[in-house]
């Protein structure tokens, strides 16, 4: 069995081409870290991601999308499990401010015979304004027995109890919100193994947050 491990880190700032497609080889392990940080004030980004697993394959996706103003982001992730004993895990976090729209559609398809598949998907969304909208649609289609699969989604705004706690310790509301945002985006950044790359992505994410949500 060939085993290779790889991490890919991608930052997407504008409307791309046909999307991302990965067909994993047998025993291959891929960790994909994705940042969708639209630049133009009215940018529309459609990002389809297609992954096909093979025997003993491992796939990790950690994605962060930020949108503000009039921006629109659509992310669609399809993970197909045609073979047994593969494992996939996805965490997708989205922050929507201004009048932006973010849509996430995720489909995990466990095909007949793909026994002992493990496939997980979590979609967490944060709304920073009354006008922003997030639509999330995680889906599971399972046609095999003896699998472990889960999916879940949460959508909410910044927690005011947390803010009160921080403010009671002297942290301004603005700084409290920044800490909360940092706490929300960190699980995606933390996945990046290479330290310099992580620092540079961190910088871009922080800048995007500051630009997109001035004064929050």
């Amino acid at each position: 069995m060939r085993v290779s491990e790889m991490q890919k880190v991608l930052i997407i700032n504008e409307r791309g081409s046909e999307g991302l497609t990965y067909a994993l080889a047998e025993g291959e392990s891929l960790s994909l870290v994705l940042f969708v940080l639209p630049e133009a004030p009215n940018a529309v980004i459609d990002l389809p991601v297609q992954v096909v697993m093979d025997l003993y394959g491992q796939f990790e996706l950690h994605a962060l999308a930020l949108a503000g103003g009039q921006q629109k982001v659509n992310i669609r992730v399809d993970v197909a499990h045609p073979c047994p004993d593969a494992r996939s895990n996805q965490l997708i976090r989205c922050v929507a401010g201004g009048e932006s729209r973010i849509a996430f559609e995720g489909l995990i398809k466990v095909q007949p015979g793909a026994i002992r598949t493990e496939a997980f998907q979590t979609s967490n969304n944060l709304l920073l304004s009354e006008q922003a909208k997030v639509r999330t649609c995680p889906q599971l289609e399972i046609y095999a027995d003896d699998v472990k699969c889960s999916h879940g989604a949460t959508t909410g705004s910044l927690d005011e109890d947390e803010q009160f706690y921080m403010r009671s310790r002297g942290i301004t509301l603005e700084q409290a919100r920044l800490l909360q945002l940092r706490s929300f985006v960190w699980p995606v950044l933390a996945q990046i193994e290479q330290e310099e790359l992580r620092a540079s992505c961190d910088e871009q994410v922080s800048r995007a947050l500051a630009e997109m949500f001035p004064g929050l």
Partner: peptide, 17 residues
Amino acid sequence: PIDIPGVSISNFLKTAL
């Protein structure tokens, strides 16, 4: 006390000060 995932005690107090 409220828990704040992703924010270390050290960073929290540095920000507060």
